[in-house]
Amino acid sequence: MATYILIPGAGGDAWYWHRLIPHLHQRGHEAIAVDLPAGDDSAGLQDYADTVVDAAGQRRGLVVVAQSMGGLTAPLVCGRLPVSRLVLVNAMIPAPGETGQDWWTNTGQDQARRECDVREGRSPDEPFDPLVYFFHDVPEDITKEAMAGESPQSGAPFEQPWPLGAWPDVPTEVLSSREDRLFPVEFQIRTAQHRLGVTPKTLPGGHLVALSQPEALTAALDR
């Protein structure tokens, strides 16, 4: 049995993982979804890491799973917890000293998204619509629940330089969704290979794969 520590993306809402957790339980694993202080303008990346460490408690043999923005936080806990594996799911992969707000341009995400929009017949200059980029493959009832309880995300963590001098010495896997419109899969593959020397495993679904494809994500996590 493994213990999965599940770190959400922007908004910091543990609810994001609610469709995945029962599948992990069915396979005999423990799963802890972390609520991050995303709406607190005084909370930075170290505060996010403190929250994850507190949620893990004294558990050992942890698999830390990070979605999207959670990729900024997850590596920070690897030196503080007994982590056996780090899994990035459609996640930001930071570089030492890089701010979250610089990440988008430094990695070429903005251009990759524009190219994906054009390729799939969307105007890249339209206002950002979360229904288009996040929920296009999420069941309608789940989408309605998510939109009703949408959590704010402070910009504070994006303004701080990423504090580690190097990626932690922990086995790291990258899972990339083939229908991700925010972080297109070819962009994720290129970034993971360049920054980590890792080639992502691909799976079906869009950016919020734990909501749209929980069974497929469970299978990928429980290798």
Rank of each mutant, 00 (worst) to 15 (best):
residue 116 C to A: 07
residue 145 E to G: 07
residue 172 T to D: 12
residue 115 E to R: 08
residue 131 L to R: 06
residue 124 P to L: 02
residue 142 I to G: 02
residue 139 P to V: 13
residue 162 W to R: 14
residue 143 T to M: 04
residue 145 E to M: 06
residue 168 P to C: 13
residue 135 F to R: 04
residue 143 T to D: 05
residue 167 W to M: 12
residue 153 Q to C: 05
residue 164 L to S: 04
residue 167 W to Q: 10
residue 149 G to T: 03
residue 161 P to E: 11
residue 134 F to S: 00
residue 114 R to Y: 04
residue 132 V to M: 12
residue 114 R to P: 02
residue 166 A to K: 02
residue 136 H to S: 04
residue 141 D to S: 11
residue 162 W to G: 14
residue 165 G to F: 04
residue 158 F to Y: 12
residue 161 P to F: 14
residue 155 G to N: 09
residue 171 P to L: 10
residue 137 D to G: 08
residue 114 R to S: 01
residue 134 F to Y: 04
residue 156 A to V: 10
residue 120 E to N: 09
residue 168 P to T: 11
residue 161 P to Y: 06
residue 147 M to V: 13
residue 129 D to A: 01
residue 159 E to S: 14
residue 120 E to I: 06
residue 134 F to K: 00
residue 121 G to E: 01
residue 154 S to A: 09
residue 124 P to T: 01
residue 141 D to T: 11
residue 141 D to Q: 13
residue 140 E to T: 12
residue 168 P to M: 09
residue 151 S to M: 15
residue 129 D to I: 00
residue 143 T to F: 05
residue 131 L to F: 03
residue 151 S to V: 08
residue 115 E to D: 03
residue 166 A to C: 14
residue 166 A to G: 10
residue 169 D to G: 07
residue 165 G to R: 13
residue 125 D to L: 02
residue 151 S to F: 01
residue 148 A to G: 13
residue 164 L to T: 05
residue 123 S to L: 06
residue 127 P to M: 07
residue 155 G to V: 11
residue 117 D to S: 12
residue 136 H to K: 05
residue 168 P to V: 11
residue 161 P to G: 06
residue 150 E to L: 03
residue 159 E to N: 15
residue 145 E to I: 09
residue 151 S to N: 03
residue 162 W to K: 14
residue 145 E to A: 10
residue 125 D to E: 01
residue 126 E to D: 08
residue 123 S to Q: 00
residue 130 P to D: 03
residue 141 D to W: 11
residue 137 D to C: 06
residue 146 A to P: 05
residue 136 H to A: 08
residue 149 G to K: 07
residue 150 E to Y: 04
residue 155 G to A: 11
residue 149 G to M: 04
residue 128 F to Q: 00
residue 163 P to Y: 14
residue 167 W to H: 09
residue 121 G to T: 02
residue 156 A to N: 13
residue 130 P to W: 01
residue 128 F to S: 05
residue 133 Y to F: 12
residue 121 G to P: 08
residue 145 E to L: 12
residue 170 V to I: 15
residue 113 R to L: 05
residue 144 K to Y: 13
residue 141 D to A: 14
residue 124 P to N: 03
residue 130 P to Q: 03
residue 133 Y to K: 08
residue 161 P to T: 11
residue 113 R to N: 06
residue 158 F to E: 07
residue 156 A to H: 15
residue 149 G to F: 04
residue 133 Y to D: 11
residue 156 A to W: 12
residue 128 F to M: 06
residue 122 R to A: 00
residue 123 S to Y: 01
residue 169 D to I: 03
residue 171 P to V: 14
residue 162 W to V: 07
residue 119 R to Y: 09
residue 122 R to L: 02
residue 162 W to Q: 13
residue 114 R to K: 09
residue 138 V to E: 02
residue 115 E to F: 03
residue 157 P to N: 10
residue 137 D to W: 09
residue 120 E to F: 05
residue 143 T to S: 10
residue 162 W to N: 08
residue 150 E to N: 13
residue 145 E to Y: 07
residue 115 E to Q: 08
residue 165 G to P: 11
residue 139 P to C: 14
residue 135 F to D: 05
residue 162 W to T: 10
